[in-house]
Write a protein that binds this DNA or RNA. Structure first.
Length: 186
DNA sequence: CGTCAGATTCTCT
DNA sequence: GAGAATCTGACGC
């Protein structure tokens, strides 16, 4: 019998911005064989869908991005710069193309590598493109409830270059001000 | 300290 | 064929 996990927030009804903030402090778990790799989420970014020009969904629905247009609570994992896997969680209603990028976690169990950046955390958690389109309600990758973070800092998103200033500057990155595991912004 | 290029491969034009 | 929601190590000051 596979375990049934619940989302720590109503991802279906909420937009990516709400979910990104609510995810800070929650626990991300990845089961690899008999090992549970666990970490507290300390940094996230919201991608708001088709109208958000920094979001992959803005380019329309393609083979790569179709998972973002699907049901909330699924993982969207893609490869960037030829070598780094990015972990996102789809939010909102079907067809909106919203997702939250997990940028950094604080190691809790069975994690030795660095996790202070989106490419690093997927490597530490052993998450790859093979995890694309898997459900966060299943028994492979899931989220656990934990107290919400109060001391949150909001900034523009990282690595957004080729779009209107309005979307480069949009304050959609959130991190736990008390954590030492935050990615370095440039 | 800081800035900069190279790694490396998938996706869309 | 370009460019990408990044990271690291090398160099210069």
């Amino acid at each position: 019998m596979p375990k049934q996990h619940k989302l720590p927030y109503n991802f279906y009804a909420a937009d990516a911005k709400e979910v990104a903030q609510s995810l800070l402090g929650k626990i991300l778990v990845h089961q690899v064989d008999d090992l549970l790799l666990k970490g507290h989420i300390v940094e996230t970014e919201a991608y708001l869908g088709e109208h958000d020009l920094a979001c992959h969904a803005a380019k329309g629905k393609t083979e790569r991005t179709k998972i973002m247009f699907g049901k909330a609570g699924y993982a969207y994992v893609y490869l960037i710069y030829g070598m780094h896997n990015m972990l996102n969680i789809v939010t909102g209603s079907e067809g909106e193309g919203q997702a939250v990028l997990i940028r950094a976690i604080e190691p809790l169990e069975n994690i030795t590598a660095k996790t202070d950046g989106p490419g690093k955390l997927t490597r530490a958690l052993r998450i790859t493109r093979a995890h694309n389109a898997i459900s966060l309600l299943g028994d492979k990758l899931w989220l656990e409830q934990a107290p919400t973070i109060d001391n949150v800092i909001t900034t523009p998103r990282i690595g957004i270059n080729n779009c209107d200033q309005e979307w480069k500057d949009a304050p959609l990155r959130f991190y736990n001000a008390d954590s030492e595991y935050i990615s370095k912004s440039k």
